[in-house]
Design a protein around this nucleic acid. Structure first.
Length: 902
RNA sequence: GGACGGUUAGCUCAGCUGGUUAGAGCGCCUCGUUUACACCGAGGAGGUCACUGGUUCAAAUCCAGUAUCGUCCACCA
């Protein structure tokens, strides 16, 4: 056998191991049958990888996602499921275009308009083709066992077809419409955003109280606003109909300051009597509420800005604010407030904090505007034709709105959300769901599949570009300028990646990926995109396929720094996963991101933690090294198992059962923790030390090693595969995962219990040695007076002596001698030591006595309580009585001990 | 304004389908280089489980409330 390195070297092995896996072809479920017969006709398991942005760098959040998903997938594969993990990347429309635009602006000082649509798209494609490769390499670095042969990109031709197909289907069902609506508009990205793409933050600002004079009178109303520049677009003033202060003003006309525009005072229930002055300026073009008030009261609407984010000259000319044409929002604000102040229209100002919306991509303040956009109608019913889907959702009726369908998918239990508390959040969100704005004014992305005939004005919705107008046969056709929201295509991710729509159209019943792997088994993702993505997948899949996209959603938390803050480059608190891999190895990083996590809770991570897990990886390596070296020793196999053998076997069975149970129950952190405790504590610290004394365990040790490596493989794939290869030609990744033969009994067998008694004795002896600093001197005599039913202890004298470096003596000891002893199973175990300090021993014993007496007091009080014997279950009563008896004996013995020592 | 989550050892976190001396890792103290590992081993110190009340024979665990930190949602100009 070749020499095994003293420490595990991740850098030398990981890339090589990954290549070996990839070349084996077993990432692809179609090849698994070649690995083992157990994959024949096996149940399938599938998961799609949440696609990282094509432009990105792998960050620690991705690393956690990949660690958890690969754990799930490797476990599924090893348990014999035909397992598919489908990787891919997302074109991330706005994010990507922003990155490229910014680069071009920096290096070439050109805007996208100067570059032109075609050229910008060419540049983005070029950029993405590079960065996509980077991301893929980084995903591989994490050890991800994903099927690269099925890798997908949201903007590829096949996926684009899926997008257009769904769009048309929605349109034909009347669920997509185009309309004038108030939408969120980012002046920097010059595009609209979905409601949930706006980040609201409390921001400091000024509240202006402005006097609006009433026509033909000396009176005025004072309105409060945080955005005085919007007054240019005011078309009314609103007050509450029951407000006594303003009741008689309703219907009067106000002269808008600066412009002398005549606008009416209207009454509207929406107005809050308590807020500000109780009178509100109405700017229907730039505020959600104002828009609605204007609709209710028939007020005009004025648009302030043109597409470049500046005051629109045309509108300005129409509505008498030419003076401000071409100004930016900031410039307009400055001008307007200055002029209002000069002309004494400002009654007062006060500092306030209010909620301001920012673009989630570029953090520019979002401006609400009214514009013509495409929407998905979530409140209009459509017909579900598949009975199976209706049954799954527990629906009686055939017609349902998208909103209700999304709710039913979770409410019915068809989709399980882990942890459960997010279901409530999901329902809450559904309740507030409004129509989804799906059009974006950026260039990168799926172009809206709608064409307009230049001649007859016909609108054509199609999955492929039409050559002529179906109505007037003319060829002068232009496509809608807008692109689709990124989440529109991500929403199809579970099925567009499996070949829909072409596979669905293929011959009925023929085996294909969609039929085999859809719905997917688990969706694993962060809770931060529950609405962005998870909900959209439920919507899209429910509508397009009349099915659920996945059976379970596992939501992981966010990775934060040690202070609990979000990691960001500007804060400098970023942990770069690639750097950590370089330093400590992928397995160490993966363990740090998985062990100790709980579903939906954030994880704080530090380099220290990763280092600690690197140490464990090395421990596992050395456990293996020891066992493999033992295998070479020429020894006669032991005839019958010892107490320790029996004990470790039972522990292994229990741990195996628990680990499987926990992984299936989404409790990955706890599974890893249990395995770690077993490996380091039980196997390394106890069992291997014993194996150095009790010989003849080679065969069993190797079996144990095999089980351990298999159990660990989903958590730490590289080191386990590497060790496996030291003594095995097969690939660990496709071996069978250990399963418990029978449910483990909570109670250990009598043999294993005996081993635990020995453990207690050893720990006790070591304890006394520790207290008296006896370590440098190798051997002490201890005296054991053991009762007959414990006579078997004598058979393990050598083991105990070696592990404690003492010499056991079974002769009776003179009890009056002042020497240290500890109590073990009601017996006294003495140690003969040279520097015995009776006072110290008394002090220690007194502390023990105090604790024990406190325990006795508490327990006996509990037992004496009236209802206890009647109401507590019998086994608890019995256990407590036993505990009490033990503690009482112990207290008695401790007292005697103190007396003797004095 | 509503909802959710956290508050447990110096630090990071488990435990929370109630069962009674509360666990782990890191850090700290003492000892030790016994040929798997110093990326190690042995031993140890350290916690009134945020607070207040309640339910119960029994509460870190269940309920109500308070404080505090965090997150999400919501059309208060």
């Amino acid at each position: 056998m070749k020499e095994i390195a003293k420490a595990y070297n991740s850098k030398e092995t990981e890339d090589q191991i990954y290549q070996k896996w990839e070349q084996s072809g077993f990432f692809n479920p179609d090849n698994l049958e070649k690995a083992s017969d157990r994959f024949w006709n096996a149940e399938s398991f599938s998961m799609v990888m949440p696609p990282p942005n094509a432009t990105g760098q792998l960050h620690v959040g991705h690393a956690m996602m990949l660690a958890i998903e690969d754990l799930i997938v490797r476990h599924a594969r090893m348990t014999g499921k035909k397992t598919l993990w489908l990787p891919g990347t997302d074109h991330a429309a706005i994010a990507t275009q922003n990155v490229v635009e910014r680069r071009i602006l920096e290096t070439e000082k050109k805007t996208r308009q100067q570059l032109g649509r075609a050229e910008l798209l060419r540049r983005i494609d070029e950029f993405v083709s590079q960065t996509r490769g980077q991301i893929q390499t980084q995903i591989r670095k994490m050890g991800s066992s994903a099927d690269w042969s099925r890798e997908k990109f949201t903007l590829s031709p096949e996926l684009s077809l899926a997008v257009r197909t769904v769009f048309k289907k929605l349109f034909d069902a009347g669920l997509i419409y185009r309309g004038q609506r108030m939408v969120n508009w980012c002046p920097r990205c010059s595009t609209t955003l979905a409601d949930d793409e706006v980040d609201y933050k409390m921001t400091k600002g000024q509240m202006y109280y402005i006097r609006y004079p009433i026509k033909d009178s000396d009176e005025y109303v004072v309105v409060a606003t945080a955005r005085p520049e919007t007054m240019l677009g005011d078309t009314g003033v609103a007050v509450h109909p029951k407000d006594p202060r303003y009741k008689k003003m309703v219907g009067k006309i106000v002269m808008l300051p600066l412009l002398n525009r005549e606008i009416p005072i209207v009454a509207d229930e929406h107005i809050d009597l308590e807020f500000g002055t109780g009178a509100m300026k109405v700017t229907p073009g730039h505020d959600h509420n104002d828009f609605e008030i204007a609709q209710r009261n028939g007020l005009d609407m004025i648009h302030l800005y043109s597409a470049d984010g500046k005051i629109d000259p045309l509108e300005a000319a129409d509505h008498g604010f030419d003076d401000y044409a071409g100004l930016t929002k900031e410039e307009a604000l400055k001008r307007v407030t200055q002029e209002l102040a000069d002309k004494e229209f400002i009654e007062k100002t006060e500092a306030i904090e209010h909620r301001v919306g920012y673009c989630y991509r570029c953090s520019t303040i979002v401006e609400p505007i009214v514009s013509k956009q495409w929407f998905v109608n979530v409140n209009k019913p459509f017909t579900i034709s598949k009975d199976s889907f209706r049954k799954l959702l527990g629906l009686a009726q055939k017609e349902i709105t998208l909103k209700d369908m999304m709710t039913a998918a979770v409410e019915s239990g068809a989709i399980q959300i882990v942890p459960k508390r997010f279901e409530k959040i999901y329902f809450e969100w559904m309740k507030n769901l409004r129509d989804w704005n799906i059009s974006r004014q950026i260039w990168y992305g799926h172009r809206i599949p709608v064409w307009y005939c230049q001649d007859c004005g016909e609108m054509i919705v199609a999955t492929a570009a039409p050559t002529a107008c179906p109505k007037c046969q003319n060829g002068r056709i232009v496509q809608d300028e807008d692109t689709l929201d990124t989440w529109f295509s991500s929403g199809l991710w579970t099925f567009s990646t499996l070949g829909w729509p072409s596979s669905a159209a293929a011959s009925e019943g023929a085996p294909n990926d969609l039929a085999t792997y859809h719905p997917t088994t688990i969706m694993e993702t962060g809770y931060d995109i529950l609405f962005f993505w998870v909900a959209r997948m439920v919507l899209m899949t429910g509508f397009a396929l009349e099915d659920i996209p996945f059976r379970a959603v596992y939501l992981h938390g966010l990775v934060r720094d040690t202070e609990g803050k979000k990691m960001s480059k500007s804060k400098g608190n970023v942990i770069n996963p690639l750097e950590m891999i370089e330093k400590y190895g992928t397995d160490a990083l993966r363990l740090s991101l998985v062990i100790g996590i709980t579903p939906g809770n954030d994880l704080k991570i530090s380099e220290e933690k990763i280092k600690a897990h690197r140490n464990f990886v090395n421990k596992l390596w050395n456990v293996s090294r020891f066992i493999l070296q033992q295998a070479e020793a020429e020894e006669i196999p032991a005839e019958s198992p010892t107490l320790a053998d029996q004990w470790i076997r039972e522990r292994l069975a229990t741990v195996t059962a628990n680990v499987n149970k926990k992984i299936i129950g989404f409790d990955y952190g706890s599974a890893g923790e249990e395995l770690l405790k077993f490996t380091w504590g039980d196997v390394a610290d106890w069992y291997l030390e014993i194996a150095k004394i009790e010989k003849g365990k080679q065969q069993f040790l190797q079996d144990l090693l095999r089980q351990l490596l298999k159990l660990w493989h989903p958590f730490a794939p590289f080191v386990t595969e590497q060790i496996w290869s030291e003594f095995n030609d097969s690939i660990l990744m496709v071996q069978d995962y250990p399963l418990a033969e029978k449910p483990p009994s909570k109670k250990l067998s009598q043999t294993a219990e005996q081993f635990k008694i020995i453990q207690e004795l050893i720990t006790g002896l070591r304890n006394v040695r520790g207290e008296y600093r006896l370590n440098p001197i190798p051997v002490y005599a201890s005296y054991l007076q053991i009762p007959e039913d414990m006579a078997w202890i004598a058979n393990y004298a050598e083991l105990i002596e070696k592990l404690t470096r003492t010499k056991l003596n079974f002769e009776p000891m003179d009890e009056d001698k002042k020497m240290p002893y500890f109590l073990w199973k009601g017996q006294k175990v003495f140690l003969i030591i040279p520097n015995f300090d009776a006072q110290k021993e008394i002090a220690l014993t007194q502390k023990q006595l105090k604790d024990t007496e406190a325990f006795v007091k508490r327990i006996s009080a509990q037992i004496k309580k009236p209802g206890f014997l009647k109401k507590a279950p019998a086994d608890i009563v019995e256990k407590m009585k036993l505990d009490l008896a033990d503690a009482e004996t112990k207290a008695k013995n401790l007292k005697t001990k103190i007396k003797q020592l004095r």
